[in-house]
Design a protein around this nucleic acid. Structure first.
Length: 582
RNA sequence: CGGAGCAUAGCGCAGCCUGGUAGCGCGUCUCGUUCGGGACGAGAAGGUCGCAGGUUCGAAUCCUGCUGUUCCGACCA
């Protein structure tokens, strides 16, 4: 904390603290509003922000915790260039794979560069040059650095901006076991980081997506305004993001009770219409989606079947061996040509394409579905009797109340802000770039990598999303720009007020706290309002009124009531507030 | 990338339809009075009305183009 105690900034009269009384226009999430109102940031251009002194203080607090825990976990800090040569990206093929979010530019010699959205190429290049022996492994290098991604649509202030600060770490190991250990070390460090910051978070399983690799987890701060759905069991630690969250069948399939019969459905093209017009329970309907098949599949298309009330999980579908990647839905014409009927009348009975049924759809019995004949449905369908037993797969999005896959309970769904991501990369980059070391047998061995990111700027926004009230921000003490603020009242009448305020500030500072003295020449109202807005955890009011009794007023930001404490004890009392230390 | 807005003083907005010398609130500056939850009085500064064309005697206002920015959607580590 001492590294922030530079003189005159500790007085509001000297601080660039442009607070706003009114809500800024065009802000939708609370953290964006409050960061602008509290004078932490100002927008420069779409997705670009200037951080003002108060905001920088918070950023530095996040960085400090991250840095300490990374060092503690054995990672070594480096600093790589934000501008990167195209050659490295061409080596891994990402120069062409990356879309327009990779901001490319040319230097004066017409050479291609990009603004780095991530640093796998640069760090792998460094390590391939400088590390030659397995004896130098494991190695973990990290940096805290500005990244640039030319987001299609920046929004929500620094939550989704184009330029942002990220801590990224990269581990290098001689083999897969080592990589897993490095991964676990980082995972543990991440838990310590978010514990220390003091946010309500969840580590969730994530899809490893196009980057490949065997393992990936995301760290999410729970908040209504989060952009991602995360699901977790109410009975165990199982948690995953919506792309990955496994769904199982709720129970065995019931025996058929009905014969299959054909129903004319001239106007019922949607599940909703079917359910309302025929009083069919929605759980006894299925949807049939026709998508392009992968090249390894014997057919051009496959039919994906999910229960009527469920939604397709496109990531799961895309990961299926028989489904083309990227996921591509058949056009209406293709569907008609293939199935002999349009999208509103499809079903598994007499289906010309290979059928893959979601696990839950596969345990339906006596269900309704399209007849693959325009304007007709079958009701009372049963798998194995009216159509062949389908291949099954987990294809749908989890929903609240679904059974958790480990049998521990049922799913809850919450919104999360992704603030961290740990990834086992395997040999994807080291292979492409020839990052090898000599192993103990003197043979070239391609290193195993992991990468680990933390969105530093995003954490600031996420903390505000989670910690605020109607008056403003309520910083967790670990991130508070100042631990304590002092508001002197009536100093022009009674010089003792200012003297005591200054004395308390200096004593608290000498005990290692960041203390802001609000010495602005304003009435108490606006100053209280500003201190509440910027979220300082502890407020001390020094006034002539309480000084008569040799007391000051002490109030915590999250509590309604203030208490009176004696002038001589106030410093010791504040120091003993354990929660202030982090 | 598709759709929809917006652009007038530092911030929030009115004026535009119906063209005629640019206004309000907050903030800022000066002086004085105030000082326990966004005070009061008096005075003052601050705007080529996003940019470029066009129509007109005259454009913040009408027309065209451009730029910036925001929202919804698609997309996305």
């Amino acid at each position: 904390m001492q590294d922030f105690t530079y003189g005159c900034d500790m007085r509001t009269s000297q601080l660039l603290l442009p607070t706003l009384k009114e809500d800024p226009i065009d802000t939708v999430v609370i953290s964006h509003k409050l960061m602008l109102r509290a004078g932490m940031i100002r927008q420069l251009a779409s997705g670009l922000y200037t951080w003002l002194p108060l905001g920088v203080r918070v950023l530095k607090k996040v960085e400090r915790i991250v840095r300490e825990e990374m060092n503690h976990a054995g990672a070594q800090e480096v600093l790589m260039s934000g501008v990167q040569p195209a050659e490295l990206w061409q080596e891994t093929g990402r120069w062409s794979q990356f879309g327009p979010e990779l901001l490319r530019l040319k230097d004066r010699h017409e050479r291609d560069f990009c603004l780095g959205p991530t640093h796998e190429e640069v760090v792998t290049d460094l390590v391939r040059r400088e590390v030659n022996s397995y004896k130098q492994l494991p190695l973990n290098l990290y940096q805290i650095q500005t990244k640039f991604r030319d987001e299609v649509r920046p929004r929500f202030g620094v939550m989704r901006s184009r330029e942002f600060i990220m801590k990224d770490a990269y581990s290098f190991d001689i083999n897969e076991d080592g990589m897993c250990q490095s991964y676990q070390t980082m995972y543990d460090a991440y838990c310590r980081i978010f514990d220390r910051i003091g946010l309500d978070y969840r580590a969730v399983l994530a899809d490893s997506g196009a980057i490949g690799g065997s393992g990936s987890q995301e760290f999410h701060v729970l908040a209504e305004s989060g952009e991602d759905d995360i699901i977790f069991s109410d009975g165990s630690d199982y948690a995953a993001n919506i792309e990955k969250g496994a769904c199982i069948a709720s129970g065995p399939r019931k025996a058929p009770r009905e014969d299959m019969y054909k129903v004319e459905t001239p106007t019922q093209k949607t599940i909703d219409a079917l359910v309302t017009d025929f009083e069919l329970p929605i759980e006894q309907t299925v949807k049939t989606l026709i998508v392009r098949a992968s090249e390894s599949c014997e057919s051009d298309f496959v039919a994906l079947i999910i229960r009527g009330d469920h939604s397709l999980n496109e990531v799961k579908a895309e990961n299926h061996a028989k489904v083309a990647s990227p996921l591509t839905f058949a056009t209406e014409n293709e569907i008609k040509k293939l199935m002999g009927a349009g999208p509103g009348s499809l079903g598994p009975v007499n289906c010309p394409a290979p059928v893959i049924a979601d696990l839950q759809a596969a345990v339906c019995s006596d269900f309704g579905a399209g007849a693959n004949q325009e304007g007709w449905h079958y009701f009372g369908i049963n798998w194995g009797r009216d159509c062949s037993e389908p291949e099954t797969a987990d294809l749908r999005n989890a929903e609240e109340g679904d059974p958790a896959p480990d049998g521990s309970g049922t799913y809850l769904i919450r919104r999360g802000i992704e603030v961290g991501h740990v990834f086992q990369l395997g040999q994807k980059y080291s292979e492409a770039m020839g990052a090898t070391v000599l192993d103990e047998n003197g043979k070239q061995s391609t290193m195993f990598m992991g990468c680990y990111g933390i969105g530093v700027t995003r954490i600031v926004a996420a903390a505000i999303e989670q910690c605020h009230d109607e008056r403003g921000i309520c910083w967790p003490p670990s991130l508070a720009p100042y631990h304590v603020c002092i508001v002197p009242i009536g100093g022009n009448k009674n010089p003792a007020v200012d003297e005591q305020a200054l004395r308390i500030q200096q004593e608290l500072q000498s005990r290692g706290l960041d203390v802001l003295l609000d010495d602005r020449n304003m009435g108490p109202g606006p100053r209280f309002a500003d201190m509440d807005l910027i979220g300082i955890p502890v407020r001390i009011v020094v006034s002539a009124k309480t000084l008569e009794d040799s007391e000051v007023e002490l109030k915590q930001r999250t509590e309604e009531e203030a208490s009176r404490v004696s002038l001589k004890d106030v410093v010791d009392i504040v120091i003993t507030l354990e929660w202030l230390k982090s």
